Deep mutational scan, measured.
Amino acid sequence: MTEYKLVVVGAGGVGKSALTIQLIQNHFVDEYDPTIEDSYRKQVVIDGETCLLDILDTAGQEEYSAMRDQYMRTGEGFLCVFAINNTKSFEDIHHYREQIKRVKDSEDVPMVLVGNKCDLPSRTVDTKQAQDLARSYGIPFIETSAKTRQGVDDAFYTLVREIRKHKEKMSKDGKKKKKKSKTKCVIM
């Protein structure tokens, strides 16, 4: 069974824990209790493949930012979460993405942009803004509501699919490099 290491990042209060708990335990946590770091595991079937999701729910508070490099190193894919009623959390996505790329030393890291709290009427981040940002990053965008469960499975499952595509691409690139290195030079 394939294991996928997913990391949920975003500013404090955007609903990272609520999304994760909704996926794992099928219930909505409405009281806000700032996370330092929590880890969850769940076995699911995605596109006919049974897999184990190892999900790291991270601290959004700035005082825990020193811990970010460590979990970013171990993560295979990242859910970059903002709240649709919090423009600052949307603007912060850029910083999370840049930090992930720096730590992973790669421009090509599996990510999904997630606009959470889409059940709320007080939207300050337009869907088109988020779609445009995701398009500019070359990553999928999904709106979710941890409260109603809308888009929750889709967000995590899409990230797994992005990781699969990335692994497939990397193995193809690896095979191309191996083929090239088999060419021999004969000096007579």
Rank of each mutant, 00 (worst) to 15 (best):
Y40I: 04
T2W: 05
D57N: 01
P34A: 13
D30G: 09
K16N: 15
G10I: 00
F28T: 03
Q61M: 07
V29T: 08
G15T: 00
E63L: 02
N26C: 09
G10M: 02
Q22F: 05
D57K: 00
D38P: 00
Q43R: 13
G15H: 01
Y64M: 11
T35S: 15
E3H: 10
V7G: 04
D33M: 04
S17W: 00
G12C: 04
T50Y: 06
T2F: 08
T58P: 13
D57W: 00
V45R: 12
L53A: 05
T50G: 11
I55M: 14
K42C: 05
L56E: 14
S17C: 02
Y4I: 13
S39E: 08
K42E: 05
V8E: 01
D33N: 04
V29K: 04
T58S: 14
H27K: 13
G12A: 03
T20W: 15
G15D: 00
S17G: 03
L52Y: 07
T35V: 15
Y32K: 03
Q25P: 02
V45K: 13
Q25F: 04
N26P: 03
E63S: 08
D54S: 07
T35K: 15
G13M: 06
E62V: 06
G10A: 15
E3V: 08
G10C: 06
H27I: 11
V14K: 10
D33C: 05
T50E: 11
V14P: 02
Y64E: 13
T35Q: 15
Y40T: 02
R41H: 03
T2M: 08
H27E: 11
N26S: 12
Q25Y: 03
Q22N: 14
S17Y: 01
F28M: 09
L19H: 14
E3P: 14
V9L: 15
E3Q: 11
Y40V: 07
D38L: 00
S17D: 00
P34I: 14
F28C: 08
A18H: 05
V9T: 05
L23M: 14
T50K: 10
K5G: 03
Q22M: 04
K5T: 05
L6E: 01
D47F: 02
E63A: 04
Q61A: 05
T58R: 04
Y32N: 06
E62T: 08
G12S: 05
Q22K: 13
K42L: 06
G10W: 00
V7L: 09
C51K: 07
G10D: 00
T2N: 12
V44I: 10
K42F: 04
P34H: 14
R41V: 02
D30N: 08
T2L: 07
P34E: 14
D57A: 01
G15R: 00
L19C: 12
K16M: 15
E49N: 09
Q25W: 03
S39Y: 07
F28W: 11
V14N: 14
N26Q: 11
L56A: 15
K5D: 03
D57T: 01
T20R: 01
I36H: 00
E31K: 12
R41Y: 01
Y32Q: 04
V45I: 08
T20N: 10
D38G: 02
P34Y: 12
I21R: 13
E31G: 13
L53N: 11
I55N: 15
G15Y: 00
D30T: 10
I36V: 10
T2V: 07
G12M: 04
A59M: 09
E37S: 06
A11M: 14
E49Q: 13
V8C: 06
G12R: 05
H27R: 13
I36P: 03
I24F: 07
T50I: 08
H27V: 11
Y40P: 01
Q61H: 08
P34Q: 14
Q22A: 08
A59Y: 06
V7T: 06
G13F: 04
E31C: 13
D38N: 02
L6S: 01
